[in-house]
Design a protein around this nucleic acid. Structure first.
Lengths: 249, 249
DNA sequence: CGGCTGGTTGATGTTACTCAACTCGCGTGG
DNA sequence: CCACGCGAGTTGAGTAACATCAACCAGCCG
């Protein structure tokens, strides 16, 4: 198991006032579509930046829900923990994405959020966000969209878990990552995985050995090159065809 | 395949003006927590009731998103369709639940919604709903909760698909149904399934034969009695222990 | 150096899928 | 009326896919 320290809730040296106006995620995160004044207002609500180290928990399942978090930098997983210690990864979250949406319904976090690398988040007290969504219709609309989008993403995962074979799931997973990296301006063909084989497996409903074998299989088929966590996609067309066509067997 | 007729979009004899104030789902559906005036406003927005026959589509994946739908009576499945014709059921929806939330992000429905029995829905034009959520903070808050709840439900399904065995998945599924029936005031121990073994299988990531075998197994273990679609749970404690404990093998 | 974590690969076991036969209930048409 | 086909469900036998168990390697850190 990971040797995690629980993230403390007090302000420390790593806490910095956030500023949406000057943030380079303006086009991806909550501020999408807002004018300068509105972004200023949103900036007032977004209370502060917080640094979270690799392996550290941003929040724990069951703890009191106060805030959403926007990933400003880094990579997180969210996971449900069984009584027996095994975990199901239910989400992977990168720059510009919101964490904690599932907590709104229960007024407590419903899963654990763990940093997969040293990360930075902006804390967004939900009560305040709710207030200003009333004042800024664009923001409310966008927030509805973000939540809806989360549901769509979950459906995609359900599709993958429910009706794909191991290598198809991995292909779908890699294509999804590829697309998200590309949206952030990174290469869509070469990237570093932030998570272990076990975490990928947990996300895809597979054991780590199966994930490893699926990687080897895709490599044998010359679709990609794997060097530990570094992935180079060499034939994205065939990678895509894994999802669409191999289902038609 | 089902011989479905596509639901038409024009008003016909089966369309009746909806009325939230007098609806017996007030405590479950959108009106939760609203006062009389607010419910009146909401009633103005909820445009009309629509009857959907068994097998009929409420909406199709890809078609223009205009409205959410509240299930007033009956039972729906939502599903994603593969190119090869196979489908993944991503949701099952009963009285008091909202349909179409995943469409908000894309401005088009992302899945098909099909009635599993003769049903009634209230149509809620989303633009109008959005307007009044600005005016009625309680409604906005509740709508956020509903969307968040949808995400939580999806996570539960992902947990089931990703890390449970066939009979555990079925147990989790039945317990979920049981709970939802009970919330609606129906028996939590005897109920009729509205869906076929194939649809259950699609929802749980299993083949219909496997679902059938899982039912037989639970019956052999004297946990429940199966008579075609009619289920009687005779030992709910052991049914529950299927999910918690058999994971610890 | 030795121990640890993360990853790969092989041999074997288990689960669920596939294919097939059969039943039951229902509706249709000769 | 019964024969028939059809869809839904159950059950059995054989098989494919994934899990499990185990050995091994590489990199990292104390």
């Amino acid at each position: 198991m990971l040797l995690n320290t629980v993230s403390t809730d007090h302000l420390d040296a790593s806490d910095i006032k956030a500023n949406c106006a000057s943030c380079n995620l303006r086009e991806l995160c909550l501020p999408v579509g807002l004018n300068e004044d509105e972004i200023e207002m949103l900036g007032e609500v977004v209370s502060r930046k917080r640094r979270i180290q690799r392996g550290e928990y941003l929040y724990h399942a069951g703890s009191d829900f106060q805030s959403l978090f926007a990933v400003r930098n880094g990579f997180f997983k969210t996971c449900l923990l069984h009584e027996d210690g095994r975990q199901q990864v239910v989400g992977l979250h990168m720059r510009g994405e919101l964490l904690g949406l599932s907590a709104i319904s229960a007024e407590a976090y419903t899963c654990d959020a763990v940093a997969l690398e040293d990360s930075e988040v902006c804390e967004i007290p939900f009560v305040k966000l709710e207030e200003i969504t009333r004042i800024i219709p664009t923001l409310m609309h966008h927030f509805y969209k973000i939540m809806s989008c989360e549901i769509v993403k979950d459906h995609d995962v359900m599709l993958s878990l429910g009706s794909m074979k191991a290598d198809e799931r991995l292909a779908a997973f890699l294509l999804n990552l590829s697309q998200r990296f590309s949206r952030l301006g990174y290469s869509s063909l070469n990237f570093n995985l932030r998570m272990t084989r076990e975490e990928i497996g947990s996300y895809l409903g597979l054991k780590l050995e199966t994930v490893s074998r699926a990687f080897s299989k895709l490599q044998e088929e010359k679709i990609l090159t794997v060097d530990n966590k570094y992935i180079q996609i060499s034939d994205i067309k065939r990678l895509k065809s894994k999802i669409g066509i191999s289902l038609c067997v």
